[in-house]
Design a protein around this nucleic acid. Structure first.
Lengths: 322, 322
DNA sequence: CTGAAAGCGCTAACAA
DNA sequence: TTGTTAGCGCTTTCAG
């Protein structure tokens, strides 16, 4: 499988490699006729530049990496899908790595990115440790933190206001007249958890709810664990409404409820978070995170080399489950 | 951001680059003491080999590419997730590309793989055109076709027996005593469609069903289209059971049924295909494709440079919807 | 067991 | 406007 190289083109056209290189890189200083001839041969021979050689010279690889915690979570697969679409518009390739929700692998995921010399990384980190981000920053890697906000760090970020997101659910529950909401949250050290939770409490109280009736449970973010939690509570249900950390955990609740003969929405209001595609399919009330817009902004930041922190707004989407 | 190179290590240890290279590539012909010293310095300095330089020399990049038609489809995101996990065990990086279900982009996806000089590609093709596979084959690329079987082509494949899969559903429906099954299938030129469909008919007939009662509809593979189809039929339901091309389309049916007040399983048996994770969450009866085993086999084929066609068996998983 | 030299494909810097 | 030279980091080949 011999690939066509610059040299092959140069020989065929009868010019130097350099002239071909100039044409390929759209440099202005080439005779228009030579340019045309070269372009013709290039497409005729189906030349594809060797990114490795380019990278070796220190040029851009046009590869961007994304590190997500679990590609199987539709939130992330939608994220990756959107990134693929938008990066494609800019002629960028995407390299994906999954950390399986573990921090150690987050470090090795970053190593994969280094191995493949991506120009830029998008990190959707687990959210409460920043050592590896700091390390990356010190090493001079270009990256952007997606979905989590660290006030005191000065790397670029694209994230949502989780406090407001939680608040919208708290208020809505209070307006519904709910007395004993159960919050199924994630790791209590995650900033996302903290924000959604405290936002909820603030919103609930502000709209007239009594926060002493609120119960909070912290689980690993996982459909099965969430389902199991509810199944175990079967006999002693002490809540009259449920707010889950994300749609995945809400799906666990739906699954358990179906087995328990509880109809979400009719019997017990249930709200998730993220607004993944399946939330719509299942009629799940949830808090929408505008992924596509956020990714578009991210690629823009990457492309223009900006260093900004951009916050997006969430939106409560009311469907059948609440 | 200066990266540590072989030269840096060599200088520090006081040997030639070559010796360091030998150690890094686990060559036997190095003095054990020298080896130890080098390994120590390597990890001390946090050396990461430059894959680009390696690739330039024609060595392996340890990158494998996967081209899927829609990363947002949980079938594919699970596929990618499993591939990441298993490839990771082998020290391989994964490059993902999404074709948005269009063939043109399937060609450009392959170009991305070429650009990134992957050692091997896994193609989960759209399934009825083979030109680009043939092209790839002629060009000498190493790849494997995942999920689709072309009898007369001689590239490696890992696929399932869709005819048998469809048959198991046909038989089951016949045993259920169903009279007018509706099949919501995909593009009628896709081999997967053809096999699932003809398998169904064969199974239905074999188990005593009357195939003249069977209705077949071909739609683009898409949740919304499927949902819409059922919503439009609201007033004139002419079927007493439904078999969908995949779980995604079955979810569209579930969504529509919920709005129509139909309970799948109770009122109308509904069966999907793939057994994506959410099928379990939703209690959907479906045909299981053993993705993880198939991916493991694929990586094995890749790793050992085999050229075989391996067929996996599907399994009907009975849950609440049928 | 170890090293020196050459070259993979490309582009930056300089020369013509 | 075009060409020449050098070198990115690595590994292969051939000599020690």
């Amino acid at each position: 499988m011999k690939r066509i190289t610059l040299k092959d083109i140069a020989k065929k056209v009868g010019v130097s490699q350099m002239t071909v290189s100039r044409v390929l890189n759209n440099r202005p200083d080439v005779n228009p006729q030579t340019r045309d001839r070269i372009q013709e041969i290039v497409s005729e021979m189906g030349y594809v530049p060797n990114t490795n050689a380019r990278a070796l010279k220190g040029a851009k690889t046009n590869r961007i990496g994304i590190v997500v915690s679990d590609i199987r979570n539709p939130f992330y697969s939608e994220l990756v899908g959107d990134l693929e679409d938008i990066a494609g518009e800019y002629g960028l390739s995407v390299i994906v790595t999954d950390t399986n929700k573990r921090l150690e692998t987050e470090v090795s995921a970053i190593r994969v990115m280094e191995l493949n010399s991506v120009d830029y990384m998008i990190l959707a980190p687990e959210g409460y440790k920043t050592e590896h981000l700091d390390l990356l920053y010190e090493k001079g890697f270009e990256f952007l933190s997606f979905g989590v906000h660290f006030e005191d760090k000065n790397y670029p970020e694209v994230y949502t206001d989780d406090y407001e997101g939680g608040k919208s659910v708290g208020s809505y529950f209070a307006e519904l007249g709910v007395k004993k909401p159960l919050l199924i949250m994630g790791n209590p050290r995650k900033l996302n958890t903290i924000d959604r939770e405290s936002g909820f409490l603030a919103g609930f109280e502000e709209s007239g709810g009594d926060t002493s009736g609120v119960n909070i449970e912290h689980l690993s973010v996982n459909v099965e664990l969430s389902e199991q939690y509810f199944l175990e509570k079967k006999e002693h249900i002490t809540f009259d409404s449920v707010f889950c950390y994300n749609d995945l955990m809400a799906m666990g609740a739906i699954s358990a409820f179906r087995k328990m003969g509880i109809q979400p929405g009719k019997d017990i209001p249930l709200i998730g978070y993220d607004d993944v595609f399946y939330a719509k399919v299942m009629g799940l009330t949830t808090v929408r995170i505008p992924i596509k817009e956020m990714i578009r902004k991210s690629v823009e930041i990457i492309n223009e080399g900006k260093n900004e922190k951009v916050q997006f707004k969430t939106q409560l989407i009311i469907r059948e489950t609440a």
